[in-house]
Design a binder for these strands. Structure first.
Length: 202
DNA sequence: GTGATGATTTAA
DNA sequence: TAAATCATCACT
């Protein structure tokens, strides 16, 4: 566990990090750091759980390459943020993947809190470390991410992905079916860090 | 215009 | 186990 032991030494992920197929990126995002620099402070978390959504996958908002106003950013360049409202009350944060025009993304499902934990507690109105970022809606709230950041290029402050020596230690990735969907529910497109206590569910 | 549908969270 | 809550999208 690495929470709050951070003399933050971050290297922002370069644009070519996103030049791979979606499932590869979903796996490669594990262990990386999501950073948000806000006016109320900086927050950061280590990605411990992701899900891939593919263009030929019925659970994907852009299934079959269908472009709508909501999904437009999924067809933009890879490495941008796709943020949308679910269930009328929570937001989900995704990283757009695939070549421009493809319509794929990786949902970030859980983070291990790393920096700015007190601000996360305020944002979430929740004290338990394990309940701060252990779900896609929770982490958006904890990180202070809003829909205004939809379409943000994640290679620019104030919202970006990074590498760090901290949290980059060896781990095993587990692959399972995805959570909370009915269509495409049998596809092995969920990735998480084995034994992490910060994932959304076993 | 209308209605069904969620890539969820929380509280009971 | 169920309620909360609303933008989105397809169209009885």
């Amino acid at each position: 566990m690495i929470a709050e032991k951070f003399a933050l030494e971050l290297n922002m992920l370069p644009p070519d990090f996103y030049a791979h197929e979606t499932t590869v990126i979903a796996r490669a995002l594990l262990g990386r750091i999501l950073v948000h620099e806000t006016s109320r402070g900086t927050v950061a978390g280590r990605i411990v759980e992701t899900e891939a959504y593919l263009t030929d996958d019925p659970a994907c908002h852009a299934y079959g390459g269908k472009k709508t106003p909501r999904t437009a950013v999924m067809f933009g360049p890879p490495g941008t943020a796709y943020i949308y409202l679910v269930y009328g009350m929570h937001h989900c944060f995704n990283v757009v993947t695939g070549p421009e025009g493809t319509g794929e993304a990786v949902l970030i499902r859980a983070l291990e809190p790393v920096y700015g934990i007190e601000l996360m507690r305020v944002n979430r109105n929740q004290s338990s470390l394990h309940n701060l970022c252990s779900g896609p809606g929770k982490l958006v709230s904890a990180m202070g991410i809003t829909q205004a950041l939809n379409g943000w290029a994640l290679i620019e402050p104030t919202l970006y992905l990074a590498d760090s020596s901290v949290g980059a230690e060896e781990f095993s990735a587990v692959i399972t079916t995805r959570i909370g969907i009915s269509k495409g529910a049998d596809l092995p497109l969920r990735f998480y860090i084995k034994d992490s206590p910060f994932i959304s569910r076993k």
